[in-house]
Design a protein around this nucleic acid. Sequence first.
DNA 1: TCCTTTTGTCAACATTTGTTGACTTTTCTC
DNA 2: GAGAAAAGTCAACAAATGTTGACAAAAGGA
Lengths: 190, 190
Amino acid sequence: MVDKPLKMKKSERTRAAIEAAARRLFAEHGYERTGIRDIAAAAAIDPAMVIRYFGSKDRLFAEVADFDLGLPDVASIDPAHVGRTLVAHFLALWEGDSANGGLPVLLRSAASNEFAASRIQQLFAAQVLPVLLSLGPPATASQRAGLVASQILGLALTRYVLALPPVVALDRETILAEVGATVQRYAIGG
Amino acid sequence: MVDKPLKMKKSERTRAAIEAAARRLFAEHGYERTGIRDIAAAAAIDPAMVIRYFGSKDRLFAEVADFDLGLPDVASIDPAHVGRTLVAHFLALWEGDSANGGLPVLLRSAASNEFAASRIQQLFAAQVLPVLLSLGPPATASQRAGLVASQILGLALTRYVLALPPVVALDRETILAEVGATVQRYAIGG
DNA sequence: TCCTTTTGTCAACATTTGTTGACTTTTCTC
DNA sequence: GAGAAAAGTCAACAAATGTTGACAAAAGGA
């Protein structure tokens, strides 16, 4: 046990299975409506294992909700297209089936889960706000970040959580153009 | 029992008390986190009465969620200020402590409650879309409604549900100007 | 006052929830 | 193969959930 085996240990495989199932179910039904037994069933394991591996439902949720927006570096963004760039990035974040699917998880539960809500707040404060700082008067950065958040999270809410038909029907290019223009205006400042 | 008494019957007063308590708690904690016993305690009555008066938790929620946006008539809106007008109306709808506080209730639960989600969809399809129909090409009305919904609901989500500090900090006039301009552009069509 | 209807109280139900501990099976090392 | 550690199984717990029915108090009409 001094050296880690090259092949993934069985325990890590089940741990990953639990995490994947949890991510999917939390993102689909939210925190309250997803039970330990549901997650266990989806991962084809015993409910007790979920607790054994993650301690509690809260800790499992926290683990799944802990991720990174992975925004491009401030310097590498063309200030003339921040809006479009940001929107494109978030679109990829929502539609990617990667392990980074934490954003759907968060937004689905944030309305009735304080932890998820404060996590979203942290994400925007720590990762979006810095990008906006250099794009306009620093004094208004917080206000600009708020407006950007209202539009980006609104798009995510209506398209991926509520799935309002008119918003779901929007094609990628329209979103990039229309919403991109809005975010651009918010980001630069009026 | 042929005629209704002029004064409110005692039963109607408790019924109203339950409804008020339910509205407040549903709006504050969402559907799943609000228990029948919580509502009963807030209304200072017995939990069984909640069921007696409303049949079930679902039906009570449906009752509380049944309301009207009360948008101004299409004809009475100045097309040059639709955006500002709409935003102002929704702001009032959110901040008003009136009996029409159904909108916070809906949005707080919509993420994990299918009924609430489809109710929101109905509201926009039946009340917002008609307003936009005459403001631009009818063929794009649905798309414009989707964009408007993404911004308005996004504002509501971040300001009243998630309470993101930068969005909460926005003063009324800034919101009317900035978000109003966005909604205006969406509503008219690009 | 008597009787009926309304309004409210109480205890209990079945189910589901997250979580735990005792136990067995598998896996790996010596 | 023996023994130890890890991984998995099973049954049960306490608490909370929505809901129900039997019963008591109050109100209103005759």
